[in-house]
Computed example of a mutant assay.
Amino acid sequence: MNQLRSDPLITWEPTEIRRPTYPDVPAQIAATASEAHACLSIQAYRGAVALARAVVEATAKHHGITQGQLVTKIDRMHAEGLIREITREVAHEIRHGGNEIAHGDLADEPMPSEDAEAIVEFMDAILQEVYQGPARMRDLQRRRQERKDRNSE
C-alpha cells in the first residue's frame, strides 16, 4: 500500500486562494463570482474572465432580462435603471473579454493578469451596484426606521 509522505521538495501554489463572499447576491451568482476570484488566485485568467462574463449574464437573467445576446441584456439593464452608464460600459468590457474565450477567439499571447484582475474587479462593481449597495441601503433605512419607531413610543 502506498502512503502519502511529506516531501520537502513539494510546494503548493498558490499558498492562498481568494474566495470572497457576497451575502446579498443570489447564491448561484455569488458562488460563480467567488469562483472567478479563485481562478485569479491560481492564475487561471481565462477562467476568471469567462466566469465574470457568466456573472453579468446571470445578473441580467435574475432581473428578468432573458431575451437576446448579452450585448442586448447589458443595454436593457441600463435602460431599466439597474446599472449606470459607466457600469454599462464596464459590463461591455467584461462581455468582450469573456466572448474572446467563450467563442474560441483566443489570442496568440496569454491574457495579461492585469486585464483579468480588472475584469473581475469590474464584475465586483456590478454586483455592488445591483445587489450589495441596495441591500446595505435598505438595511440602513430599516435601522433608521426602527430608531424612529422606538423614539415615538
Rank of each mutant, 00 (worst) to 15 (best):
H78W: 13
A79G: 07
A79M: 09
A79I: 03
A79S: 14
E80F: 07
E80Y: 07
E80L: 13
G81K: 01
G81W: 02
L82I: 04
L82H: 11
I83A: 01
E85H: 15
E85Y: 15
E85L: 15
E85F: 15
E85A: 15
E85P: 08
I86M: 05
I86E: 08
I86L: 07
T87F: 05
T87C: 05
T87I: 08
R88L: 14
E89L: 14
A91M: 14
H92M: 09
H92P: 05
H92S: 07
E93V: 04
I94K: 03
G97V: 02
G98S: 07
G98E: 04
G98K: 03
N99F: 02
N99I: 01
N99T: 03
N99A: 02
N99D: 09
E100G: 11
E100N: 14
E100A: 11
I101V: 15
A102H: 03
A102W: 03
A102V: 01
A102P: 03
G104N: 06
G104M: 04
G104A: 06
D105T: 06
D105A: 11
D105H: 15
L106M: 10
A107I: 01
A107G: 01
D108C: 00
E109N: 09
E109K: 12
E109T: 13
P110Q: 11
P110S: 10
M111P: 02
M111A: 02
P112E: 13
P112V: 07
S113D: 08
S113C: 01
E114T: 11
D115V: 14
D115Q: 14
D115A: 14
E117G: 05
E117P: 02
E117S: 12
I119F: 02
V120G: 02
V120R: 00
V120A: 00
E121L: 12
F122T: 07
D124K: 05
A125G: 11
I126L: 14
I126D: 02
Q128T: 09
Q128A: 10
E129S: 09
E129M: 09
E129L: 06
V130I: 13
V130M: 06
V130A: 05
Y131P: 05
Y131G: 07
Y131S: 08
Q132G: 01
Q132P: 02
Q132N: 08
G133D: 10
G133Q: 11
G133M: 08
P134A: 10
A135R: 13
R136C: 00
M137Y: 13
M137F: 13
M137L: 14
R138E: 09
D139Q: 15
D139V: 10
L140I: 06
L140C: 03
Q141I: 03
R142D: 05
R142K: 12
R143C: 00
R144P: 00
R144A: 09
R144H: 11
Q145G: 00
R147Y: 08
R147I: 10
R147E: 11
